[in-house]
Amino acid sequence: MKAQNYKNHRKFYPPHHFIYLPILILLEIYGIYKIWDDTEHQLTWILFSIVIFLLFYLAFMTRQHYALGLQNRIIKLEFKQRYFEISGQRSDEITDKLRFDQIAALRFAYDDEFKELLYRAIHENISGDEIKRSIKNWRADQERV
């Protein structure tokens, strides 16, 4: 992966930005035009409208993909903040040693268990599922998307 800088920091999801949305716009414009222009083939244009709807649905589901990606990023940031609050140290070295499933699982542990489970995650490489199973006092995450 190239080093990020100002010129390449924007991220596009090509199927969404360069395929789905342009197709949706073109189909919508063409479909609206043909509905009024070709009344003999209204059934065809109704079916065409269904295709447009399905493409809109696909675009909507792509947006959910973005939301989940953002949520994962927020979980990582919450971990870094929490680690700093508990230890008083930056978490860069620690987060490099953990997988996302471990970071996500640690958010369910209260502070007293957090340290022990973090140690085990780093030194014993226990999975996120094992971390969750080891938690004695569950800290609920009610805001998960």
Rank of each mutant, 00 (worst) to 15 (best):
N5C: 04
H9Q: 06
R10E: 03
R10Y: 03
Y13T: 04
P14D: 00
H17S: 11
H17Y: 08
L21E: 10
L21C: 01
I25V: 06
I32M: 14
I32T: 11
Y33E: 00
K34V: 01
K34D: 00
T39Q: 11
H41N: 15
T44L: 15
V51S: 06
V51F: 04
F56M: 14
Y57L: 15
L58H: 06
F60W: 15
F60Y: 13
R63E: 07
Y66M: 10
Y66V: 09
A67R: 15
L68K: 09
Q71S: 14
R73V: 06
I74C: 00
E78S: 02
E78M: 12
K80N: 03
Y83T: 03
F84C: 03
E85M: 14
S87L: 07
L98V: 03
L98T: 07
D101P: 08
Q102N: 05
Q102A: 03
I103R: 10
R107V: 11
F108I: 08
D112E: 14
E113V: 12
K115D: 07
E116Y: 12
Y119C: 00
I122Y: 02
H123K: 13
E124M: 11
I126Y: 11
E130R: 08
I135G: 07
N137K: 12
R139S: 06
Q142E: 12
R144K: 15
